[in-house]
Design a protein around this nucleic acid. Structure first.
Lengths: 237, 237
DNA sequence: TAAAAAACATGACAAAAGTCATAAAAATAA
DNA sequence: TTATTTTTATGACTTTTGTCATGTTTTTTA
């Protein structure tokens, strides 16, 4: 974990433009930029642990981070995968609680750390920003409701199919034989997203491949038949 | 659904004092009070439907409301039970989305409806209030993360035991032989909270009774052995 | 490059939980 | 009060999913 020069000010940061900071005013942007720290993280490094106290928020410049809770059986339930432009840790900070989850680097990442005070100052002074944060929280809440409902009412097969569709939506790049999910996840991590055992994921992925819904290219998954996966995932009720 | 006189101004409302409106300034309280509508709802009535557009927020004066999503298999996943002082519908309103869930009266209720404009005006003008709303949203998000993790990583038996503990925490009243969960829920509704089939709940409740963890009194459940339930629910990890 | 570790794969089996059928009890409506 | 509907209950059975064991492949580290 090495601290880099603050060579990219927030003002010029490309991924900021897709983030909650997109429309923050120039002076506030300076305030953020002057106080942030860009840190380079390697795959496997832990950004923060559930139960510890947030000292600021993280803003992903590039890379992938998994946000997860560790269940009492030791398994990781992945809450979400965060990518460039996404914020981490702000809900716990604003909730004035310890982190409700942990975050670990899935793909090498450059992440800015914005200390608590800077973040809260901008939040307090820039009402439009506060509104965007509120709106984001509300949307996240709606997403979590859907995830909970899916977790209790859908089968693992349905959930895995749905997970693959969502991943291809977010990380998909077109190829000659289908859409490649351009992110490396272990079977165990996919199991963590779906909420099941690793072996079950392995078996189902093999089945999906046999049924020509997906294919493998190295460690990456190619989605061949989106409609088939949508049908399987009970996308139409 | 009959509209009552606005006989109780927000200023004097007891349940407001435990709500997000607890510390709203006098003028803002007047503004809310003048525009609200107190409506009496009977058990079974529907407050709002998933997919429709929120026109304001609901504030429960008394009674119980279940907030749930209807899954594609027709079953209801109950997201939460709301009681006096709780707000409904504000996340969808602030997220500028259609309702992400539905709400139905579980026990006869008096509920105030605060129109969108009044609510947003107070939110925009009273920064401390906005902060409390934000904080509440963040806490809800943390709760949902735990629920999701429990749903995927714990057994139905564990989740039912946990649900009973939580219900007794919120609705429990001390009796001579244990803590009575003073709220009438059908087995189907309990199944909706836990996220399982009604028959499974019936079977497990019978088992819990046989094991002298709980007892029944009419339609209500008495928690006899909290520690036993806590052990079963994997409360200690 | 060799050794060790992690990830993937598959079979066999057990356990958990859902579904369907049926019936009794309780609550509600006519 | 009686009829009807809803809720609770239980058995029988199936399906789904998890666990454990074992082996192979791939990746990482020394």
């Amino acid at each position: 974990m090495k601290v880099q020069q603050k060579n990219t000010p927030c003002q010029l940061c490309m991924s900021r433009k897709f983030s909650l900071f997109s429309d923050v005013s120039e002076p506030h942007l300076c305030q953020l930029s002057d106080n942030k720290n860009l840190i380079t993280h390697k795959k496997g490094q832990i950004l923060f642990y559930e139960g510890t106290k947030p000292l600021g928020v993280f803003c992903i410049s590039d890379g992938i981070v998994k946000v997860y809770k560790t269940a009492s059986n030791g398994k990781e339930q992945i809450i979400r995968l965060a990518k460039a432009g996404d914020f981490l840790g702000y809900a716990s900070l604003l909730g004035e609680e310890a982190y409700s989850n942990s975050a670990t680097i899935v793909e090498d990442a450059n992440i800015c750390f914005v200390p608590r005070e800077s973040f809260l100052k901008v939040l307090a002074e820039d009402n439009a920003f506060h509104q965007r944060v509120t709106k984001a929280l509300c949307k996240d809440l709606g997403v979590m409701e859907s995830k909970l409902t899916d977790a209790t009412q859908k089968s693992i097969r349905e959930r895995l199919a749905f997970t693959l569709l969502k991943l291809s939506e977010t990380y998909g790049i077109d190829g000659n034989e289908g859409e490649k999910i351009n992110i490396v996840l272990t079977r165990e991590e996919i199991a963590g997203i779906v909420g099941t055992a690793t072996e079950t994921v392995i078996r189902l992925l093999s089945e999906f491949k046999k049924d020509e819904l997906i294919d493998f290219e190295g460690k990456k998954i190619i989605v061949i038949d989106k409609k088939g996966l949508a049908r399987l995932s009970d996308f139409y009720g």
